Each structure stands twice: as C-alpha cells, then as structure tokens.
Computed example of a mutant assay.
Amino acid sequence: MMHDTSQNRDEGLLALRPEVATEPTTSNPAEAFQNGTLRPILKLQNELVLGLFRDYLTKRKQLGLEGRFARLPRPEQEAYIDHSVRTDQKFKNLLVGVVIGQFTTGEWTAFRIDEAELTRRTVQLIVQRLCSQIDLLVH
C-alpha cells in the first residue's frame, strides 16, 4: 500500500513539471540532475520563488514606500539577491526546500548522494532565476 502511494505521488509530481529545453547532458551526473530535475522544478515553482523573495524584501523594508531595492542600480540588485540567497541560511534553506519538496523518491535518493554539489547548483539556479526577473520583483 505504501509503495502505491509513493508511486502515485511520484507520477503526479512528474506530470506537473513543464518541459525545459537544455543542452544534451554530459556524463556528469550532477549536470544531468540539474537539467533533468532542478530546472523543470524551478520553472514550475517560479511564482512561489518570486513571491518568497518579494516577501523577504518586504520584511527587510527593502520593498514598498520606504524600500530601497527598486532604486538600486541593477548590478547592486543582483548582488543583493546573490548575497541574500547565499548567506541568509534560513532563507536559503526555505528556497532549497521549495525545490526538494517537489522531488520524487528516486530524485531524493540521487540528491542525497551528492547533496553538497546539488544544493550548490540549486542555489546558483535560484539566484540566476531571480536576477533574470528583477523587473517582476519590484513591480
């Protein structure tokens, strides 16, 4: 019975994921996981990740009438995003958890094998995604 529930969950999660065009994967397992699992999950979770970062900015009085994030030059906005995601451990763990929560049981097993590298790649992809959508964060 437990196996059926897990299998149904895995099938449901995979069915939700959008297609993401990527370069053919090399023999690097971390890159294959990044392209086959992380990128589609981040595309699926994009609105949530943007909302979480907007909330992060609002709580730190960086958005809204007294906020300064929107007035920063773009390179400084990107640096702020990078610094926030990489150094605020609680926030970083929340964002990584948003991704991990969409893993199938097999993907979770694969993730645990190379957790440090795959977490690093996840954070890098989140930072890139947020930086590429700064206009959506401030409007």
Rank of each mutant, 00 (worst) to 15 (best):
T104D: 09
C131Y: 01
A79S: 11
K61S: 02
V85Y: 06
D114K: 14
L118I: 07
T22V: 15
D88S: 07
V96F: 14
A21L: 12
A15K: 15
D88Y: 13
G101Y: 07
R71L: 12
T37D: 04
D55T: 11
D114P: 01
E66M: 07
L38M: 10
L50W: 00
A21W: 08
R121K: 14
P24T: 11
P24G: 08
L95K: 06
E19T: 14
Q128S: 11
L65V: 06
R9A: 06
E78Q: 14
D4K: 06
A79K: 11
L16F: 04
A116R: 08
Q7K: 10
E11Q: 08
E115V: 15
N28R: 13
Y56C: 04
Q62R: 03
Q128F: 12
L94K: 13
S84N: 05
P40L: 03
A30F: 06
V20P: 09
V98I: 12
L42K: 10
L118P: 00
E117F: 04
K90G: 05
I113D: 12
E76L: 13
P29N: 05
R54L: 01
A32C: 09
N8V: 02
L16Q: 14
S132G: 05
N35Q: 13
G51S: 09
G106R: 10
P73C: 05
P40M: 05
S132C: 02
F53L: 01
D82Q: 13
Q77C: 03
Q124F: 11
S6P: 00
R60G: 01
L137S: 02
N46K: 15
F33N: 08
D55V: 03
E117D: 13
T37A: 12
Q34W: 05
Q133Y: 01
G67K: 00
L50E: 00
M1Q: 05
Q62E: 07
A30P: 05
N28C: 13
K92E: 15
E115S: 11
I41K: 03
T37K: 07
R68L: 02
P75D: 10
F111N: 10
P29Y: 03
E23C: 06
D82T: 15
P75I: 12
V98M: 12
I41G: 04
L130N: 03
R54A: 00
T58A: 07
T119C: 03
I134K: 00
N35F: 03
L42D: 05
V20G: 10
T25N: 14
Q45W: 02
N46P: 00
F53K: 00
E19W: 08
V49K: 01
Q124C: 01
P29T: 04
G106K: 11
K90W: 09
R39V: 10
A70K: 01
A70T: 01
I126W: 09
Q45K: 15
D10T: 05
P75H: 07
A30S: 15
